[in-house]
């Protein structure tokens, strides 16, 4: 699968991302890196352990990473979660996690096809 096909599969805007990255191989490198980035797991762990401050920080970082790679759906979900966490609505935030997780796994699955 090409990187363009990948973005089409996950229904994100390839042109916009490439525009920012300028080079396809640079984009490719970081999309592949996304698979190994620990932020998602850290966020999951923080939610499980009710560590609210940690969860806020990791959701923030995760949002930034997704934003950068143009995973807008994931970015939106993690941003919503971060806002809820900051408001102190921990339970609501936690309820968002399954959907976030699903989207994340979907992307990871497709990244594996890239390799």
């Amino acid at each position: 699968m090409t990187i363009q096909a990948f973005y089409e599969t996950i229904q994100e805007d390839y042109e916009d991302v490439l525009d920012r990255f300028m080079m396809e191989n640079l984009l490719m490198k970081y999309v592949l890196k996304f698979k190994d980035d620990p932020t998602f797991d850290l966020l999951k762990q923080a939610l499980e352990n009710h560590e609210i401050q940690e969860a806020i920080r990791h959701s923030h970082t995760f949002k930034g990473i997704c934003d950068n790679l143009g995973f807008m759906q994931l970015k939106k979900q993690s941003e919503e979660m971060m806002v809820l966490l900051k408001e102190g609505a921990f339970q609501k935030a936690q309820n968002l996690f399954p959907a976030l997780c699903q989207e994340y796994l979907f992307i990871i699955e497709n990244i594996q096809k890239l390799m």
Binding site: L26, K29, Y30, K33, D37, T61, G64, I65, N68
Partner: peptide, 13 residues
């Protein structure tokens, strides 16, 4: 930056 991915990315460019 606390995220290694972000650090690496900025370093790369």
């Amino acid at each position: 930056d606390d995220s290694s991915m972000n650090r690496e990315f900025l370093k790369d460019i």
